[in-house]
C-alpha cells in the first residue's frame, strides 16, 4: 500500500519536478551569463553591460529563492489538501495507516527536494565559480592562489571543513539529506499544528511554520556563537586569513541539531495524524 501511495504522489509531482529543473537550468544560464560580465567592473563606459549583468544576477538569485519557496509551498499545500482537505475524506479512509501516508510523502517529496537542492547547489557552485573567475581574471598567480578557496568545489570545501575531499563529499551529502528531511518535516508539522486552530487552519499552518522556523534559526545561532567567537579571536591573531576553519565538531553538532529537530517535528506530525485526527 505504501508503494501505491508513493505512486500517486509521484504521478502528481513528476511534471512539476521537471518544470522546476527546467527553471533552475534556465536560471543558471542567466546567472552564468550575467556573471561573465563581471569583469567590466572597472570600465565606466561599459556601465550598461554591468547593470545588465547585475540585474541578470539578481534575477538568477530571485529565481533560486522563488524555486525554494515555490516548491515548499507545493509540497505543503499538497500535504494539506490530501490529508486535511476535502480529499482527506478519501485519503484517510483508504486501507492504509497514517504512518504509511506521511511516509509516502516524506519519501517522494524528500527525493524531489534532494534533487532540487542538489541542482541548486550545483547551480550556485557553477555561477559563483564563473563569477569569481571573471572578477579575478586579472590577478597574478599568487593572489589567485589566496582566493582559490572562493572557488567552490570539493577541494576548497575539504579545506574549509577540515576533512579529506571524500569526507567533505560525504558530509555534504549527509547534510543535504538531513536538511531535506528536516525542512519537509517542518512543513508537515506546521500543517498538522495548523489543524489545532478552530478556524483559519491555513493561517494556523503558516503561523506554525514561522514559529518552527524561528525556533530553528535561534537554535542554529546559539550553536554558531561559540565558533564565531573563536573565529574572531583567531582572525585577530592570524592577520588576514579571512576564512575560518569550522572544524568537524561544528558539523557534527549541526547534524545532531537537525536530527533532534527532525525527531521533534516527526513526533508532532505523527501524533497529529494518528491520535488527534479531527476532520471537519
Amino acid at each position: 500500500m505504501l508503494k501505491m501511495l508513493m505512486k500517486y504522489e509521484w504521478k502528481y509531482i513528476w511534471k512539476k519536478l521537471l518544470l522546476f529543473a527546467g527553471i533552475l537550468m534556465f536560471a543558471t544560464l542567466i546567472g552564468g551569463l550575467s556573471t561573465t560580465q563581471f569583469d567590466n567592473l572597472a570600465s565606466p563606459d561599459q556601465i550598461l553591460g554591468f547593470l545588465g549583468a547585475m540585474f541578470g544576477f539578481m534575477f538568477y538569485y530571485t529565481l533560486l529563492i522563488g524555486a525554494v519557496i515555490g516548491f515548499s509551498l507545493i509540497v505543503g499545500i499538497r500535504f494539506y489538501k490530501v490529508v486535511f482537505g476535502d480529499m482527506g475524506y478519501v485519503t484517510n479512509t483508504l486501507p492504509v495507516s497514517a504512518r504509511q501516508i506521511y511516509a509516502a510523502h516524506l519519501i517522494v517529496y524528500g527525493l524531489c527536494t534532494f534533487v532540487i537542492s542538489g541542482l541548486m547547489q550545483l547551480s550556485i557552485m557553477m555561477v559563483t565559480n564563473t563569477m569569481f573567475t571573471n572578477m579575478f581574471n586579472e590577478l597574478n598567480a599568487s593572489d589567485a592562489a589566496d582566493v582559490s578557496y572562493l572557488h567552490f568545489g570539493p577541494a576548497s570545501l575539504a579545506e574549509v571543513f577540515g576533512l579529506s575531499e571524500f569526507g567533505a563529499g560525504i558530509l555534504m551529502t549527509l547534510l543535504l539529506i538531513v536538511g531535506t528531511i528536516s525542512s519537509l518535516l517542518m512543513i508537515y508539522a506546521a500543517v498538522v499544528l495548523g489543524q489545532n486552530w478552530k478556524r483559519h487552519k491555513v493561517w494556523g499552518a503558516v503561523v506554525s511554520y514561522i514559529i518552527i522556523y524561528s525556533i530553528m534559526m535561534v537554535a542554529a545561532w546559539i550553536v554558531t556563537i561559540p565558533y564565531m567567537i573563536h573565529m574572531f579571536m583567531n582572525a585577530a591573531s592570524m592577520g588576514d586569513t579571512a576564512m575560518p576553519v569550522f572544524g568537524p565538531s561544528f558539523w557534527v553538532i549541526c547534524l545532531a541539531l537537525s536530527a533532534v529537530f527532525g525527531i521533534a517535528t516527526f513526533c508532532i506530525m505523527d501524533h497529529g495524524m494518528t491520535k488527534k485526527l479531527n476532520l471537519e
Binding site: M1, D86, M87, G88, Y89, V90, T93, L94, P95, V96, S97
Partner: peptide, 17 residues
C-alpha cells in the same frame, strides 16, 4: 484501522474527489 477501512465503503456527504 487499515483492516476495518478495507471492508468499509464510505460515501461522504460532500463531493471529495
Amino acid at each position: 484501522g487499515p483492516e476495518s477501512k478495507a471492508i468499509v465503503s464510505y460515501l461522504p456527504d460532500r463531493f471529495c474527489l
